[in-house]
């Protein structure tokens, strides 16, 4: 019992130390006004949490991230099934996909802002662009990792191609897609913030930009703290969702208690 409490005690000490160091450094004015004390930041944060603009920004950020994630998931799985099912399509798209894969959405941000302006559509487009490729690639891997015996069995039971795709190939690709979604969900949040910060799209990214431009450092730190918490929530919720959706798969199955 005692041993299991100790890690938490150390965690509390660690967080307390970090906050204390922050407070002392800020009180000593090592960075002038650019580093506000922790107490100021948290009281500013409390004020921000009471305003309607904050909640509508938060809603915009979460809404854009989730909508784009859903669009990217549907399109990505569809494209992935297509690319994974036909050898010729796979080879035709291989070079393009491999080239685009390491290119982050921030690279095409200037183009998106130019064509769509600082709008929610622009953010949406960038997030879909950023999340689409990983989902496509993983789906392709999943389709190609389908057990050929299961596929042949389905065929000998007289299933049509469409039925095999829906009932054999897609389920066996699901763990791959689940992994892709778990990586894509936090990334969607990050790209939404980037689109707001650098491209002026609606949401918390834009608020951070405004706080920095206005020299409102306490709000700047407060908003970054909000983003940290939001990021953790996104990671936690997607992990949970992945478990729920894929509970039937062997790598997620819990051992049956005897």
């Amino acid at each position: 019992m005692k041993a299991s409490v100790r890690p938490y005690a150390f965690s509390v000490v660690g967080v307390a130390c970090a906050l204390a160091i922050w407070q002392v450094l800020a009180e000593a004015k090592i960075a002038g006004n650019a580093l506000p004390p922790a107490t100021t930041v948290f009281s500013t944060l409390a004020t921000i949490l009471g305003t309607g603009t904050f909640w509508s920004s938060l809603g915009a950020t979460i809404g854009i991230a989730l909508l784009a994630l859903a669009l990217a998931a549907v399109a990505g799985v569809a494209i992935g099934l297509l690319v994974g099912s036909f050898e010729s399509v796979k080879y035709a798209t291989l070079a393009v996909l491999e080239f685009l894969k390491p290119v982050p959405p921030i690279v095409i941000l200037p183009l998106a802002v130019l064509v769509l302006g600082p709008t929610a559509e622009m953010s949406l487009f960038l997030v879909v662009f950023g999340c689409l490729l990983p989902i496509v690639m993983q789906t392709v891997d999943g389709v190609q990792g389908t057990d050929p015996v299961a596929r042949d069995t389905a065929r000998s039971y007289g299933m049509g191609e469409g039925e095999i795709l829906a009932r054999v190939v897609l389920p066996s690709a699901m763990p791959y897609i689940g992994t892709a979604m778990r990586v894509a969900a936090p990334a969607a949040l990050v790209v939404t913030v980037v689109a707001g910060l650098l491209g002026g799209g609606p949401g918390l990214g834009q608020n951070i930009y405004q706080a920095q431009a206005a020299g409102d450092y306490a709000s700047l730190y407060g908003l970054v703290i909000v983003l940290g918490v939001l990021g953790l929530l996104f990671q936690g919720v997607t992990r949970l969702a992945e478990r729920r959706v894929l509970h039937w798969h062997e790598s997620y199955r819990e051992a049956v208690p005897r």
Partner: peptide, 26 residues
Amino acid sequence: RWMMDPLIHFLRGIPPVALVPIFISL
């Protein structure tokens, strides 16, 4: 590890680009 764990996880949750404005101000 026990001391750093919550801090690391929190810092990891922040989108890396959101740290840039803080470094600009500092």
